[in-house]
Design a protein around this nucleic acid. Sequence first.
DNA 1: CCATCGTGTCGACAGATGCTGACCCGTCGA
DNA 2: TCGACGGGTCAGCATCTGTCGACACGATGG
Lengths: 111, 111
Amino acid sequence: MAADLAFDALADPVRREILAVLAEHEECSAGELSSHIRRVGRTAVSSHLRVLRTAGLVTERRTGRFRYYSVQSDGPAQDVIRLLQELFQGSLDEARAAVGATRPAAAPTGG
Amino acid sequence: MAADLAFDALADPVRREILAVLAEHEECSAGELSSHIRRVGRTAVSSHLRVLRTAGLVTERRTGRFRYYSVQSDGPAQDVIRLLQELFQGSLDEARAAVGATRPAAAPTGG
DNA sequence: CCATCGTGTCGACAGATGCTGACCCGTCGA
DNA sequence: TCGACGGGTCAGCATCTGTCGACACGATGG
């Protein structure tokens, strides 16, 4: 299950920090990211970025010699959230129906 | 943040399996749990149970020489779900209002 | 009281993971 | 073409974590 990779990727605090930075700035280059994440070096950030990409939690956009990363909301991330809701809010059908939008990709909303 | 422990606890597939069993059976003794989780021994299950308890994802109820475990939906589990929604569905105000009881970013109880 | 059962905990070991410095590749500017 | 810069990858090292076997402890039953 793709969610496996995602859960694993989300377990690391540095990776969650990267995700948080990305969530705020919409899009960041690898260098910008490592500037924000001062607790570890550029190499480490690069490694984490790879893990996040493999897990399908972020997407990469290459432009010239820069690589811009951004959060990928649809896909594994949604699987994780849904799985968690099933586990901890097992009878939240109503809530899920209410939020409706929790549907994965295939939506007209550009990503 | 309490969610840190929870994220860490959720990263292990065996622990997620334990949670899944608990979600289905409502409540299980340690022995029952290790019967369902055949992939690892009783000792390992016990260790995982400790991690899950420390993370606040399950609760223990002692009766005689048995210990019954069950999912603890409120607490860290909700923090995790909320954090994930902020990260990946940043503008889910409507959804949060629908499921109710959730506060917007601004970090609630300092923790 | 003693045997047995249900469980948690300890010590040891193997495999996984994160961090860093060094190195290689591709792009941009002179 | 050459140098500078952005950025990924590799090898090495320290540490963490999962798993198991053995053992300790409280509870139940004869």
